[in-house]
Write a protein that binds this DNA or RNA. Sequence first.
RNA 1: GCCCCAGUAGCCCAAUCGGCAGAGGCAGCGGACUUAAAAUCCGUUCAGUCAGGGUUCGAGUCCCUGCUGGGGCACCA
Length: 837
Amino acid sequence: MERSTVSEEQVAEQSTGAAYSFAAMEAKWPAVWDELGVFAPKDDGSRERRYVLDMFPYPSGDLHMGHAEAFAMGDVVARYWRLRGFDVLHPIGWDSFGLPAENAAIKRNAHPAEWTYANIETQAASFKRYALSLDWSRRLQTSDPEYYRWTQWLFLRFYERGLAYRKNHPVNWCPKDQTVLANEQVVNGACERCGTPVTKKALNQWYFRITDYAERLLNDMTELEGHWPERVLAMQRNWIGRSEGAHVQFVVEGTDAKPQHEVTVFTTRPDTLYGATFFVVAADSDLAADLVAPEQAQALADYQDRVKALSEVERQNTDREKTGVFLGRYAVNPLSGEKLPVWAADYVLADYGTGAIMAVPAHDQRDLDFARAFGLPVRAVLDTGEDDPAVSGIATSGEGTIVNSGPLDGLSKAEGISKAIEIVEAAGTGEGTVNYRLRDWLLSRQRFWGAPIPIIHCDVDGEVPVPDDQLPVRLPDDLRGEQLAPKGTSPLAAAEHWVNVTCPRCGRPAKRDTDTMDTFVDSSWYYLRYLSPNYTEGPFDPDAAKNWMPVAQYVGGVEHAILHLLYSRFFTKVIKDMGLIEADEPFAALMNQGQVLNGGKAMSKSLGNGVDLGEQLDTFGVDAVRLTMVFASPPEDDVDWADVSPSGSAKFLARAWRVAQDVKSAPGSDPASGDRALRATTHRAIAESEELLDAHKFNVVVAKAMELVNATRKAIDSGPGGGDPAVREAAETVAIILSLFAPYTAEDMWAALGREASVANAQWPQHDPSLTVEETVTAVVQVAGKVRDRLEVTPDITEENLRELALASGNVQRILDGRGVRTVIVRTPKLVNIVPA
RNA sequence: GCCCCAGUAGCCCAAUCGGCAGAGGCAGCGGACUUAAAAUCCGUUCAGUCAGGGUUCGAGUCCCUGCUGGGGCACCA
């Protein structure tokens, strides 16, 4: 350690005369790019517009490896399209409302805005260092009053259309965060954010009527087919959960109701109506309480208490024993006239279908489990050739012939379904229908740091919308620390000066709604606000939307496959129905980047396997980190940081950069006189890169760039030398391709090549097809599928000629050894397969 | 339980229409340069495509079955 050390850069300087220094480049170029204003769209209609969008970040601390990957991918698309001559919009902003800011504020006795905006500044600085080709002039934050004013404005338009409403309903409640959660935010019975088991609580809450749009959300996915990852579409389809079936009305006897109490069930299998042997309503539904006979009321109440005591995790366990209670009533099967005992059970869900089912134990496993638990009859009405469910304990539900079913006897499953629907429709006791798994979107939150719901509650006028000219309803800025702590009601309720207002309609004292909106509301329309971030006449300028929508390429993580993407699709459709935009879908194409792992696992504090982005950037430079992200695998695959080599990327970048230093010809020299072989490599790289970029195979594009750098190096060292114009052409091509992944190195190369900044403004080179055709091609000659000879032929050889050449081959003749030839398959110019007799 | 996706070299990954399994990188090995090392440059080893069946003149690619891994949904009638 006594020896004096020499820095890598000094050594490089000694050996090559110049040094590749990422630090110098990172210090030099950002100012130049700013000055040139390269990344703002012209927006004048002179070029075709393309909107590239990355999912905007939540400002929790600084950027991490995941951001680095996602934004590297989006930037490749934006930069490529810019080089191809499109007018590219590539904006950035922050999804800046949300719980972590509030929790931080409580801990530090501060206002959430302080933490939020400090983090945003940190992230903004990191984004700039990361050299993303963003238009900073459109930056927005969803927690800015000028943004959430329009979130509130949109809420009111939804309200006017009947798409925002309040109902009293059991909701998912997170006891830790002290707030309600949407269905989409409950994962395996636990809070998506903090993992606390979710409980149910009956509360009066705000909902968006997304179920009205279920059919359109489902059908319009055909437009996205091929442009969105198949698994995301599958997840959305799954989530929407369309199922066809029938509503069938059962009269429940013995209640005091007049006319008699009718209960509708939803079933996907009306063909099995004759197999119904009992009837079940959801234990926690109003229906159970309405129907119960007086002598069973106490039993029901006891059962309901037992159900309530279960956590959601326990309740959702499908292995659980079936439980339930008889309600002392009978429901009449409208087809058979049979009287079925009515039970309440927790395996029937209150908020799916109608909250009541006809139980067909022979052909539904859950019903069968219940029947066996309580000794209820099992009657098969579908002969599938399998064992009798009453004996086997296994319900049968496949194709079969209907039996024991009066008018349905002898029909197939499908025929039985249509016939049964026909019969109940004719009798007025039911109808064919479509049911969805999707529930309405619960949007109110009992927390502070979100957009206040712009409604005033008046004793006389009820719910009164805040008039548009009084928007935004600003959050009070004088609450601090403990005043923001969750108490089960919104902290806003305690801010009396804020809550107490006069009714806009009658002028009497009234109170503001104290809930705030789910932050997914904020992010459901931000892509529209970017189009005209300073527009004051509405949430966005409709003309701008006409010009830019839909987003041509959206980039983000698959964790938003349902939540954000479904909500945004819903918002777009409603906004279209309001006449403000023409697009049906917000995001024409979607790319999901994979995760960044370390050692096969997601990075996490508890595992201690986190990799700090800042340290990586300091060690290897921005370009090497970006290149590593892109080169590691196709964009949608995970990158395991333990498997990749940022130092290898840095080495390659230095190698590419040195190639530019070794170019000796003048800028603008005509490549036509240059080395033909190198030119062929260059033009092939251009042509292949285009296809690969269109197919999002960015990792392969990097490989092509490496190949081209290797060929150029060889041409300089042991070929025509650095003065050959083909070497310049190759080096310039490398710089342009690299500008997609490694903007600093590319810009520095461009400058070394004597070209004017910025390489981001360069044109994508046109490849010359005459250079990419091979002069000769190797044709493979197979006998019975095995390679037996190779022939050098011209690419345009005729089938006839190639066949003759192949058959004449000495090797072929020897292998054939006198055997005749059955067939000869010729695929000019690359292959001949001779099939012996 | 149901639904998606993926298995190619020690590792990360390529392979238009079904047509010679290999473009690129990491790691390894050898060499040049050096007193030595680093850096740089040059060269090079390594798999028959998870398994089994099928279609085909020909299968990594298409079909079926299974295995492994990953993901989503899950008492949704």
